[in-house]
Design a protein around this nucleic acid. Structure first.
Lengths: 134, 134
DNA sequence: CCGTGATCGAGAACACTTCTCAAGTACCAT
DNA sequence: ATGGTACTTGAGAAGTGTTCTCGATCACGG
């Protein structure tokens, strides 16, 4: 039995308000900044729940943090993430899905899951990088 | 200036002796098991160095550990990893490389890097899972 | 063989996440 | 509306993995 608490709503709201991936800690800070006395443990729980229900994506940042993002669809999909500004674009990798399954099957693997995320610099950040590099 | 110490050799050796990805902690334990009094900090340092020089791959396990693997080639490639036994197969994702670049370019991204790893159950572990599930 | 300074190692320090448990409270039935 | 129940919360402790500190050590060049 799941209850509807304002804390859960707050977490979901904070996640929705954010375009890119955010860490649990950042989300907690953000919520506190708005005056919510929500606890860190609760944020983690809420995020875990959202991720489980498919309402949020989670991935590991290279630094080892767990990052979360509101997910408009619970369908399987992947991301194109700007390394600099965090801008995230959802992508639909039909080809990759197929490929991953093929590769897995060819090697006798079952229950294949794949981690496919593309990191790069978005157009804006690319321009900035080029400018500062010159 | 880099020195050649037996500790570094030991770490590299232990990594080579292993087929799949291993955690830094596991590597440290393995080394201790062989009698090396090597320190955990040193293992981390050596692994970080190897990864930096391109002699080792590193990736984050879903649990957040850093996993390392000796890398025969410093060429870009990906992995098919058994979730159960750790068996790792290197795969050559021509199609995916192309796709990743296309997607990145289509969205104005530059310097695209991608994380493409497929997790699953290898043939042997699949059989085991099926047997225990029934 | 010596001196220098990079490296080692044990443990402390850190960051992130999960767990504990008493107190609070949303929900259902009445 | 009221009461009971048990899920949820929150503060801090605990746990885990990684990095840092710093004196001691040891590889390497001379």
């Amino acid at each position: 039995m799941k209850r509807n608490t304002w804390q859960r709503e707050a977490v979901r709201g904070a996640l929705d308000a954010n375009d890119g991936f955010v860490s649990a800690q950042a989300l907690h800070s953000a919520l506190h900044a708005t005056g919510s006395p929500i606890g860190l443990a609760t944020v983690y729980r809420a995020l875990a729940d959202l991720a489980t229900k498919g309402d949020a994506d989670s991935l590991q940042s290279p630094e080892g943090e767990s990052l979360y993002r509101a997910c408009s669809t619970s369908k399987h999909h992947h991301h194109l993430i700007c390394r600099n500004c965090g801008l995230t674009i959802e992508i639909e990798p039909h080809a990759v899905e197929q490929w991953a399954n093929d590769v897995a099957a060819a090697n006798g693997f079952t229950q294949a899951e794949h981690v496919v995320d593309v990191f790069g610099l978005c157009a804006a950040c690319s321009a900035l990088a080029a400018a500062s590099a010159s």
